[in-house]
Amino acid sequence: MSGVITGGWEYVWAAYGVTAAVLALFALSLWVRWRAASRGEGTAVPEEEW
């Protein structure tokens, strides 16, 4: 590596932005799938230890 890297903030923002977006999208998908699984019959979950 030669010398000092100057600037590069756009890469920093890209890295943090991608991370935030991926985590948020996964949370959203969990929510959507949970709602879909909660609809309809036969969703009663047995309480005994599995």
């Binding site: 890297i5 590069g8 890469y11 920093v12």
Partner: peptide, 12 residues
């Protein structure tokens, strides 16, 4: 010192 601001990516 060497990596500049790019090194901040390391924190995530």
């Amino acid at each position: 010192r060497f990596m500049g601001d790019v090194q901040r990516i390391m924190y995530v």
